[in-house]
Design a binder for these strands. Structure first.
Lengths: 167, 167
DNA sequence: GTCTATAATTTGATAGAC
DNA sequence: GTCTATCAAATTATAGAC
């Protein structure tokens, strides 16, 4: 993976988190990165391939950050909460897999598979840390919903309100 | 509003809840309803107009159903929970305003305004019933996130898991 | 109100030169 | 690896006949 590949994935992640899978074009990304759309196709043959790669990278990064937080002494719930909170405050955007998952009906198979893997991995990681299936679902749902609320209202503080009771 | 207008709005609601604002076309709706796309434009001049009308109708219906539930003796949280649960189980789909709100960056102004109104009205209705702003945010977030989780995992039971502790 | 026809633009994707 | 050029299809939207 070279610099251009990464820049394309960065631009795609940014655009997907703002407008979803059907909300951006190869020309948008090309313009963001400073190349032509044919060059984007050189790095990622299809839109499906690109979005799946972006979702996979997002999942891996996110889970690694949470793991690190736990290794540093956080409990699972606090680690997930701070992961989402950081993603919101640093980037001012929704969770990538939340945006994609909400419009799941518009996703090609390969992309849907990666998005599902994010949520399944989240639930699995929490239950492995002794949370019940119910509690894990509640935590993930509240965090995703809090991101959504903050995103749509344009009010980042809504995330903190919605997750204040979460522990 | 005549039958065709309603049928177009029904089809649009269905398609938006599956794939979002950018996930359907006028030709999709025309084919769903059994007319040509020019006829859809006769009823709704632009896509923005149509989506805004659909979001407004969704909000009005949803709030009315919750109000009725409360009038029948439910408490606010239970009423909202059953409203979302019904929308999920009856239609097997996400919340319309949840889908649209997640990809807020892809929404024209008029549509974003209606979607925000749904969430603001929800928060207002709960705080009017003596819930704190924090609690109201938590309830809305958990419900929207639970819909998202059930939707992306294709597992309606995930909604019940995620909302089991909500009251 | 619905149709046919079409304009104007955008889309995902490919061929081939450099 | 990136470009120019282009394709075929799809998109939102309009004009005008019936």
């Amino acid at each position: 993976m070279n610099e251009t590949t990464d820049a394309i994935m960065d631009a795609a992640e940014c655009r997907i988190r703002a407008g979803g899978y059907t909300g951006f074009s190869f020309r948008d990304l090309a313009s963001d990165v400073g190349v032509k759309s044919a060059s984007v196709h050189y790095h990622f043959p299809t839109k499906e391939t690109l979005a799946a790669a972006v979702a996979r990278r997002y999942k891996d990064r996110f889970l690694a950050a949470v793991d690190q937080d736990i290794a540093d002494g956080s409990d699972v719930v606090a680690a997930w909460k701070s992961g989402f909170r950081q993603a919101l405050h640093r980037d001012g955007r929704m969770c990538l897999c939340g945006v994609l998952g909400a419009a799941a009906g518009a996703l090609p198979d390969e992309v849907l598979t990666e998005v599902r893997a994010f949520f399944e991995a989240g639930l699995a990681q929490m239950t492995a840390r002794r949370l019940t299936a119910e509690k894990a679902s509640q935590v993930l749902a509240t965090l995703e919903g809090a991101m959504l609320l903050a995103n749509v209202l344009g009010r980042p503080a809504a995330f903190d309100d919605a997750t204040a009771a979460l522990r």
